[in-house]
Amino acid sequence: MGTKDYLGIIWFSIILVVTPFIIGNDYYIGILVFAAFNCLSCIGLSLLMGYAGQISLGHAAFLGIGAYSSALLTVKMGWSPWLAIVLGIILAVIMALVIGIPSLRLKGHYLAMATLGFGSIIHIVTVAAVDFTGGPAGISQIPTLNIFGFPINSDVKYYAFIWIIVVIGLFFALNIIHSRSGRALRAIHGSEDAAGSSGIHTSRYKIRIFVISAIYSSIAGSFYAHYVNYIDPGPFGIMHSVLLVTMVAVGGMHKVWGAVIGSILLSVLPEILSTISEVVEGYGIEYKPDYDTLIYGSILLAIMLFLPGGIFQGVGDGFKRLKKLFTRKTSSAV
């Protein structure tokens, strides 16, 4: 991790600590908790997209695996939530290996297709296996989490807890990038053949990063289940997988920070839009949640066409350009 990243984490943490005091409303804090689940998944996904150059359209399935493991094991078998989370991770790893090994050994974007199929199958199973998953009715009464006897039973407590997890996850991800594996991955992204000829076992690294990204999602799914206390197949479908990809791509897929920004931005966007719509309601413009799809699609398209590096890089470039403009001006003045 470079100094910039350490500074980034410190600033990010400060912002996270200050935010609840500024908004101070449980509803909005709840939205930020949801943003954290997306953020955690997106950090993992950005490792895969930005550094291994692969795309997964089934990450919501890993969320689902985590969430359903936690829900089933705690509700039906009475396991400790923490043990259930670990089992969810193990399951996600096995699934990621089953999907990843065959499709990542191939060159190209077969993973996208394999994960798309895998994601739909998991979603279909969660809906159809009524005896096991509860089907569309879902599973309720999932217990809240306890840490050393302290129940995390309010929005603010959960906010603190989940964002600490996200920061730890971020820390890990940034470390992976600046390790030998990270450099190997970037080499693979640049050219698979060149990386392979300089002794990098390309498919092994790609599979490893895919498994890691699946772990991130599984953890997010488990914590999601414990936060909402009730799960159904709804949020684990293809649309959510696509939304996660959108978040990473909008934020900027070549930087983990981009995924953080993209996921937070798009998670709170519907809220911002509906707030705006309440303000402008008097003018005959009304915002409906139905428009979400349209807006996500337009944003993703606009970003991919005009700012392929994502918002994060776009803003960075903007600053650099401003700086250049500024320095040029001063130098000409002297």
């Binding site: 997209m49 150059g53 795309i55 359209l57 190209g108 974007h109 996208a112 696509v242 990809v245 959108t246 791509a249 139905d290 428009y291 979400d292 799809t293 349209l294 807006i295 996500y296 699609g297 337009s298 993703l300 398209l301 991919m304 066409l305 392929p308």
Partner: peptide, 22 residues
Amino acid sequence: GILRLIIITIAVSILLKGIAMC
């Protein structure tokens, strides 16, 4: 890049779906 083009087609698909829903 292939990855970028794929994401563009995903974006178009979300957009078309949104338009169809509207």
